[in-house]
Nucleic acid binder design. Structure first.
Lengths: 106, 106
DNA sequence: CGAACTGTTCAACTATTATCGAACCATGAG
DNA sequence: CTCATGGTTCGATAATAGTTGAACAGTTCG
């Protein structure tokens, strides 16, 4: 299961991966810590496994997340350091408005 | 020719608009100042007018650029202040790596 | 007015992306 | 080994995005 090197991250690929509401929302939740794939379903409700897996693949191939075996499941985590090294400030700038938008208004 | 209000800018739309290499490169050039549409062609070479107009539409509808009549042509400009107000730091985080990537490597 | 100039819109086509069921693969438990 | 569990991959279809020529619209100049 291939992950791009930190130095090879492509900005347009990262932006594209985060330009989908479901993927952006997941990236936000991953700032809290790693999740198993089963916990990566959108907040609204369950989606088919294959659809979820496709979104994870998009994020992984762009270098936004890491997806590694973890016992009989897999652990999904945000590649914070790699993203910060390659695109300083980007993650904060993208996720902070998304987080405030997600939190309950008032 | 509709432009979204600054308060209505949608993050995923902005990210999507900037996730295309040609559009991202144009956004970079617009940091230098406004351009006429004819000057918005990608650096590599000319593209059909209708294709260029389509990319400008994508950027405009996302709220990244403003496109206003200017004599017999149109002036294209970056909506820096509006973007900064809605998504602080985003533009800098996105364009600074793109700018260094564009400048001659050494 | 009428022609030239600058861009946008339209319509058709192509290409990429999303969605989802079914088949498949690996791991751990019995 | 066998079976259940947790996820990925495959293949087909639907939806969205990109590309482009041609037609159209606004502005300026003669």
């Amino acid at each position: 299961m291939p992950h791009p090197d930190a130095a090879d991250l492509v900005l347009t690929d990262v932006l594209f991966a985060l330009s989908d509401p479901a993927r952006l929302e997941l990236a936000c939740r991953l700032t809290e810590g790693p999740l198993e794939v089963a916990a990566c379903h959108p907040v609204g409700g369950e989606i088919p496994k294959s659809t979820l897996s496709h979104h994870l693949k998009t994020l992984r191939e762009a270098g936004v997340i890491r997806n590694k075996p973890y016992g009989r499941q897999r652990q999904v985590s945000l590649r914070r350091d790699d993203l910060e090294a390659r695109f300083p400030g980007l993650l904060a700038a993208v996720l902070s408005p998304a987080l405030t938008q997600a939190s309950p208004p008032r």
